[in-house]
Design a protein around this nucleic acid. Structure first.
Lengths: 218, 218
DNA sequence: GTGAGCCTTCAGCTAACCCTCAGGCTGCTG
DNA sequence: CAGCAGCCTGAGGGTTAGCTGAAGGCTCAC
């Protein structure tokens, strides 16, 4: 369930989550959020802290589901004290990668023991979401936050061609004003750090995009 | 079992304990507490001294389980005279680390001989919960109370990445109003005292958090 | 009262990180 | 084969997160 009074944010999130296979309900204010949450018992609520009527923390108190808070970065980061165990928060402006990663982490935690090992693997490239570790051919690699998010996006979509615009929309904050040149830079960084051995996994499709894929056998 | 008339405290504790693997029942007043305790025979009761109906000590007298009392700091310590052998108390506002540590200590005592050695170990770093002692590479290290709680939290969650917000929520009192800067200070203190030799165990993940972990072989 | 240890804040510094840009390379296409 | 658009990557500047030394206030024991 997604709760935010700005339609653009609401749509951005709900579309992105639906595309990833989630069933999504939305609400535009606190009253509606509580009403819908009580009626439908969502697995998780993405909740803006600043709502026109109720405070986000107040809403959280009234519903019985883990919450991922959305909060402005300016709103002194430390004021996030309403967090119950299992909750988490993301600061605006966020990237979709960020939000989805947090959502999956919260769900994994609340679902308890049935937590699947959060490990992605393509050929001899491995990524552990929890530990934030990346391995190529058995050797650990250190990545910066953006590099990590980008590689994660590639690995979740392994075998699928991703345009630079798509990458920008998912990995960078939604208010990013620059051009797609950054993507090229970061792909370059990634190649140097995790794709400097055979077989090459990150491939360029000129004027189309990039794809991370294991070369066919033979 | 958790007994407190304030829902926020009740939820905070029960969520935290459930997350740690305990089965938790709750009660909001003395009558309910006695009723539930008699019916279910909990292993331990976390019990607020100030309840709307019965006095906490009165409740304790009527149930047959060790008790961890919650009491206001103002309530001059001599008021805690109702303690039976095996009981213990924590003053409000508490930290979750504090409460969990006391709970485990009480359970260990009441369970008798089957008491597991309360000793945590990561690489050549060791921490004894009972003795409140810490060793690094065979040499004992003196830690302040907060340093000890922080290190304990790190060691219980060895290998897991902890955000500063998470650390603040668990190690500091729930009413702490300051910002996450303290965490940085204390990590710095800990590093100086217990992580000044190779291999380094406390690692910073920029803009994500910290993790205590043994470096991988090789 | 006094001092020691402890907790917290703060500010200066450093290193890491993010982004831009430009020059050069690649591989299409005419 | 020439030209061009797209892509790669090294260099550099601005920014930020985190580290740590210093200082103030607090509590508690003596």
């Amino acid at each position: 369930m997604v709760v935010d009074d700005e339609p653009s944010i609401r749509d951005l999130l709900s579309a992105s989550l639906r595309f990833s296979g989630f069933e999504v309900l939305t609400a535009a204010d606190g009253e509606e959020a509580v009403e819908v949450a009580v009626r439908t018992s969502p697995d998780l609520v993405v909740l803006d802290v600043m709502l026109p009527d109720l405070d986000g923390f107040e809403v959280a108190r009234r519903i019985d589901a883990p919450v991922l808070f959305l909060t402005a970065r300016e709103a002194t980061e430390d004021k996030i004290t309403g967090l119950r165990v299992g909750d988490d928060y993301v600061t605006k402006p966020f990237s979709l990668e960020e939000v989805q990663a947090r959502i999956r982490a919260v769900l994994r935690r609340t679902r308890g023991e049935s937590a699947p090992a959060s490990r992605l693997k393509v050929a001899d490239l491995e990524l552990d979401e929890d530990a934030r570790e990346v391995w190529r051919g058995g050797r650990q690699v250190r990545l910066s936050p953006t590099e990590f998010k980008l590689l994660h996006y590639f690995m979740v979509n392994a075998g699928r061609v991703l345009s630079k615009a798509q990458i920008l929309d998912h990995v960078w904050n939604y208010d990013f004003g620059g051009d797609a040149g950054v993507v090229e830079s970061y792909v370059s960084y990634l190649r140097r750090k995790v794709d400097d051995v055979e077989p090459r996994l990150i491939h360029t499709l000129r004027s189309v995009g990039y794809v991370l894929r294991e070369p066919p056998p033979g």
